[in-house]
């Protein structure tokens, strides 16, 4: 436990998780909102196919692709930076302070599609009557999004957060391909560090300890996110409206059955 590299990897995974929440949740929600509002059309289907495409490609291939693009000596990004701004720009994968953020960026680029699709399916399931009701109450599109769509999809937000949290603990392929934990172990993540200890140094003891730690972290993050989402919806005032709606729907269902 007193291992300093393990501490770095834990810190990195915390940054990874929080940044994934901060970037992916709002962004994919907005994308999903746009897709859902264009929904029954060819263009919406086309957009969702394109946005989901990176998730289907192996993350090893994605990592190799981005490694080529961000490469210090041959990459097109460096070339363009030099051409337009006269500087080579930052060393995306070789800078000790930057490499973890590059990995987070590539990970976000790859997995944005999954959360977008899950969100858009949930937004499509929000009953249209709620939007009409809020329109009568004088809500604009942004207010509608905040006070109708977000509370109605809170369970999906939780699912997405869980997927991102487990994705953080699983992050291995991209770290392995892009930086191999380097430079100087500055972009080490728990999953990759465990692999490193076990199968590079053949230290099975410490490796298993990290594996157990990953499992404990998975359980902690699961329980933590569950608790957060038990507290939040209770505060939201629209819950009353939703309950009323569901009650009505239930009654109507009973009537139509008899």
């Amino acid at each position: 436990m007193s291992d300093s590299i393990l501490m770095i990897s834990l810190k990195n995974s915390l940054i990874f998780m929080l940044l994934s929440f901060a970037i992916m949740l709002p962004f994919s929600f907005l994308l999903a909102n746009s897709i859902a509002s264009l929904s029954p059309s060819r263009s919406a289907a086309f957009y969702s196919i394109v946005i989901f495409m990176p998730c289907i490609v192996a993350s090893v291939a994605v990592g190799q692709m981005w490694e080529t693009i961000l490469n210090r000596n041959y990459g097109p990004i460096t070339y363009l930076m030099e051409y337009f701004f006269g500087t080579k720009g930052p060393n995306w994968l070789g800078d000790m302070n930057l490499s973890i953020f590059t990995i987070i960026f590539v990970n976000t680029w790859q997995w944005m599609g999954l959360s977008t699709l899950i969100f858009s399916a949930a937004i499509k399931n929000v009953p249209k009557e709620l939007y009409d009701a809020s329109k009568i109450d004088g809500a604009g599109p942004i207010q509608q999004m905040i006070w109708v769509t977000v509370p109605m999809t809170s369970k999906t937000i939780m699912v997405n957060m869980l997927i991102m949290a487990f994705g953080t603990l699983r992050a291995f392929d991209l770290v392995f391909i892009l930086t191999a934990g380097g430079p100087l172990d500055s972009s080490q993540m728990p999953a990759h560090y465990m692999y490193y200890q076990t199968f590079k140094y053949l230290e099975f003891g410490p490796g298993s300890a990290i594996a157990v730690l990953i499992l404990i972290l998975a359980i902690i993050s699961y329980i933590g996110i569950r608790i957060i989402f038990l507290i939040i919806p209770a505060i939201s005032s629209t819950k009353v409206k939703i309950d009323q709606y569901q009650h009505e729907k239930f009654n109507n269902g009973l009537k139509s059955e008899t």
Partner: peptide, 22 residues
């Protein structure tokens, strides 16, 4: 309103597609 959605979505799609094109 739809135009805004189209612009937003297609600009993100470009970000997705550029690495593949490269």
């Amino acid at each position: 309103k739809n135009l805004g959605h189209h612009v937003f979505l297609s600009s993100y799609c470009i970000i997705v597609v550029i690495p593949f094109v490269w």
